[in-house]
Design a binder for these strands. Structure first.
Lengths: 337, 337
DNA sequence: GTGAAAGCGCTAACAT
DNA sequence: ATGTTAGCGCTTTCAC
């Protein structure tokens, strides 16, 4: 069943059918109705490849997810898929490891799949203009942004929380409960990501609290996984540790840390408190319940799609920052009481 | 840059270029080399839409994921994407809720995206021949199968663990530690899924242990989520409960149950043991560490792709069952000591 | 071994 | 408002 058949059956030309298919105004009500009924009757569906071919572009939007293991992304992916689908787009997802380069991956996909645009879920914050010149379609960074200002903000969109500020807030939350010796659990900063921003927020908080940098302490894991965090904290705890709290840059990392603390004989929160950023569902069910700043995942996904489609339709690039919500668990001890 | 340009530049006809592109044997070594070098030089990539159009099929494989929230699927999805990509296919994923119908979704996608085949990740076990007649491309069921035999096994492929047997094994694991009053935590059986199979395994184990059905007890959650499991168990524990162990049909559900037990003042495993099936990473990090039967997720994904591509290339449908691995945590108390 | 040419199903001038 | 037609970039006969 092709457009020709429909044309013949409806007693009109192919262009009229094409016009109906594409919701163009210049068709008489009568023709439109007839064509539509024939289409419905025969359950006809236009061939996407033919459309893409002649339009020299497809209906495909790329989604490059960096850091496959991150459970924080699943909610965002669901929202993106839902909204992309509703907009009639095909989502082509690719998951890459935290060491792979998302721009290269995006550029490849763009050519291979003739993408209309790309959403990057997680990535580096230090793109250079030369680098993104590889990308010829609009893109939006979801959950991170080009915080170092090396990019012209009019060249890309982003949807994020204010990482530095939220990290600051998390540390201040600990400080408010009387903690001063606060360690930060971070991922390998070689991957210039939100990790650095959250680190800055941590440092700024310490400074404002009048805590000398030496009193702070940074525990570095290889990546954002539970396993790495567990290993890093376990390793650290083999030496004397006098911090009373840990700020983990991600829920998963906090969960890894909690096991390490437990196995070293420390109780959370009695011997060591812990706070994180992300707001995974599971964090609310573990023991002790994790105190964390929840990111609005559904909205982050929805907004990313909205921005991208806007740019594709000729709109301007925009940068959205969304607020987090504190979810108080039992992982932070109040030292002031 | 089109095939024509490459032809001109290489000084050959388009058909020769096409032959090279498609790895056909009937090209002289000389022509092949020249064409290949021009292609490399200009970084040429054939237009997928044009290919799909003339071949009257695309390179797309559909992945319908049922039960979006299930973290157990992420590892499988990663493996599927990786292997599909390696095979030169485009994965088109759609996530549906546990109440949506995957066959209808697959049928829609098949037409819309001109799929070559479909992988269903999670789904009902009771398809009818009439139902799957909606599907005109080969499909494989990943993580479940048509266990009621209403389908001709030559019409579809599947990759699963032996759910009934593994559930049996889990319960027997509890029995071996001296447990006799064992409850099962299951999802709503209206969704005819692995849930039923795991229930049967539970019942068979009880029977073999000589435990009367009344002594067993089934706790039903609305679905497979952590939240539902938590709610169901919390509700149940408002009444007197004398079971000493729970068999949860999924890790996530066990995690929800553990919080419910804790909040009701019961200690795991001292007052109540718990065992599950799935083997999520996080289960190994929570307290107490969950004892569970790990599914080989990476292999399940890889095998699903393998089977599907085999069938697409004219091979026969096959049904694979994979073994689980017991991961002993601390959530089961040994009553015999 | 190779090239010319006929489509694949659709959109978008262009003509009416 | 509607039909005719020329491609979009590729694969595949078919003739050489």
């Amino acid at each position: 069943m092709t457009i020709k058949d429909i044309a013949k059956l409806s007693g009109v030309g192919v262009s009229t059918v094409s016009r109906v298919l594409n919701d163009r105004p210049d068709v008489s009500e009568e023709s439109r109705r007839r064509v539509l009924s024939i289409i419905a009757e025969h359950n006809y569906l236009p061939n996407n490849s033919a459309r893409s071919l002649v339009r020299t572009k497809s209906d495909a939007i790329g989604l490059v997810v960096r850091g496959v293991q991150n459970p924080f992304y699943t909610g965002i992916i669901r929202a993106i898929e839902r909204d992309l689908d509703a907009a009639g787009c095909t989502m082509v997802m690719r998951q890459i490891g935290s060491c792979d380069d998302e721009i290269k991956c995006g550029a490849m996909m763009e050519r291979e799949k003739r993408l209309q645009g790309i959403i990057f879920l997680g990535g580096r914050s230090d793109y250079t203009p030369e680098e993104i010149a590889l990308l010829n379609v609009p893109f939006v960074c979801c959950s991170y942004t080009n915080s170092y200002g090396s990019l012209d903000p009019h060249k890309y969109s982003s949807v994020t929380i204010v990482d530095e500020q939220e990290a600051y807030r998390a540390v201040m939350e600990l400080a408010q409960k009387g903690h001063r010796r606060i360690a930060a659990l971070v991922a390998n900063p070689m991957d210039y990501s939100i990790c650095q921003l959250r680190c800055s927020g941590y440092s700024r908080a310490l400074r404002e609290l009048g805590i000398a940098p030496e009193e702070g302490e940074i525990i570095r894991a290889d990546d954002f996984t539970i396993e790495s965090a567990y290993r890093a904290v376990t390793e650290r705890l083999k030496k004397p540790a006098d911090f009373t709290a840990i700020f983990a840059i991600a829920d998963d990392m906090a969960i890894g840390a909690m096991r390490a603390l437990r196995e070293s004989g420390r109780s959370v929160p009695d011997d060591c408190s812990i706070i994180a950023i992300d707001g995974l569902t599971v964090s609310e069910y573990i023991y002790p319940m994790l105190t964390t700043l929840c990111q609005p995942t559904d909205e982050m996904g929805a907004r990313s799609v909205e921005l991208l489609l806007g740019v594709i339709q000729g709109g301007a690039h925009r940068h959205l920052t969304l607020p987090t919500t504190l979810r108080a668990g039992q992982s932070v001890r109040d030292l002031t009481k």
